[in-house]
Design a protein around this nucleic acid. Sequence first.
RNA 1: GGAGCAGUGGCCGAGUGGUUUAAGGCGUCGGUCUUGAAAACCGAAGUCGGCGAAAGUCGACCGGGGGUUCGAAUCCCUCCUGCUCCGCCA
Length: 428
Amino acid sequence: MLDHRAFITDFDAVIARLTSRGVDGDTVTALREAATTRSQAIKKTETLRAEQNKASQDVQKLRESDPAAFGAARERLKTLKDEIKANEDAMVAAEAKLEEMMLRLPNLPDASVPVGKDEHANRLERTVGQPTKLAFVAKQHFEIAEALGIVNFEQAAKISGARFAVYRGAGARLERALISFMLDLARDHGYLEIQPPLLVRRDAMVGSGQYPKFEGESFETLDHEFTLIPTSEVPLVNLHREEILEEHDLPLRYTAYTPCFRREAGAAGRDTRGLIRQHQFNKVELVAYTKPEDSAAELERIASHAEEVLKRLELPYRVVSLCTGDLGFAATKTYDLEVWLPGQNAYREISSCSNCGDFQARRAKIRYRPDDGTGNAKPRLVHTLNGSGIAVGRTFVAILENGQREDGSVAIPRALVPYFGSDVISGV
RNA sequence: GGAGCAGUGGCCGAGUGGUUUAAGGCGUCGGUCUUGAAAACCGAAGUCGGCGAAAGUCGACCGGGGGUUCGAAUCCCUCCUGCUCCGCCA
């Protein structure tokens, strides 16, 4: 969520940056009007309340000294009470309207983000490694996996339908090895490992920015009491909601392995085969809380930690900076890591690292007290960042496609052998 | 699932309708004293919002929301959270 005051004090800059990421100008103008209406309504109600407070104290003095005057004053205050009530209703309505609009408004893009409409305007930052060259026709990961018997989609369909998978034997062990490998690396990089709840309350979804705008894209329990997390960014960002941290607590760095659950409602027909797009997938997430002035450097740091996973697994990849039009709702700046998939002859997203600035912190009320020596400094909003470190299912895909051999077996990257227990998969 | 108790500032804790603009203690920060420190004493200090260049000023906030009242931390309703006992259970 943005600071609504910026719509009044800094309108031109805000409208320019929001339209660059696809928000229509009328929406921004309506926001400015709602912000103005709100502050006028507050002003009026508070003036009346100040009057009431004063009168109420005066009335109290009459209570014993002059019962007749006391009764008359009480009658007069009843009309003031009704007037306040009417103004309060208008104030509450104005605040609710602004809040509703603000919650659906995306973050402002950082100045370093390339301006553009869609992914064609994304900026290539760097390419690491060469696309894997194979001396035979590359197979797609699901062909390799099914032939080896390590993933079974038919069984998953019987149990749960499309976009689910059953991992078997070496497949299940490979998934588990990747999770351990990634968590250990994150720990080496200074992140505290967390096992969070996978079912969260609505407030948590609002805090990290998924709700209210993306309601309907997650799975919920029948009574809507809980949402299945679409990413562990949700619980990790809400760990410190409504807290005032100390400056020396920052930065805070957390990692969590969790399954993630997504409806993929807008992706009908895309990536229907294989493990690329599942309703349930595993992910190791990295989340950081920093001081505002440190978040830009922290984004580079998180991205480098995600990249380290790919480097150690000897997977070729490239890094792109998302353009304004392609940026996620809560992000001011995002690097996507795209891994090379020989079976698709393409780079595919495997990690997304974002600086959310104070957007989530404002929603979730996560602040810190600057240490100025007095202990009385005003709290400031922290900055939050998140990055996949990295998507486990897609890493599984990348290992199969890049490590495939002509005989159908798959070479396991050296760094993973201690976790997996073998340097090859040749069967279940 | 049933029955009961509780939620007050960074922490502990008093407070059942009007000098509570939330007592007191601990901790924090500043000062006095001291060679320095401790102790003691004095003082400062919550969060959010409105207006304001600022100083400041006004409003709201005692788990969340709603209600009663001229006036609510205090009375009523409801939700959330924690604890105790009973039942059931991985």
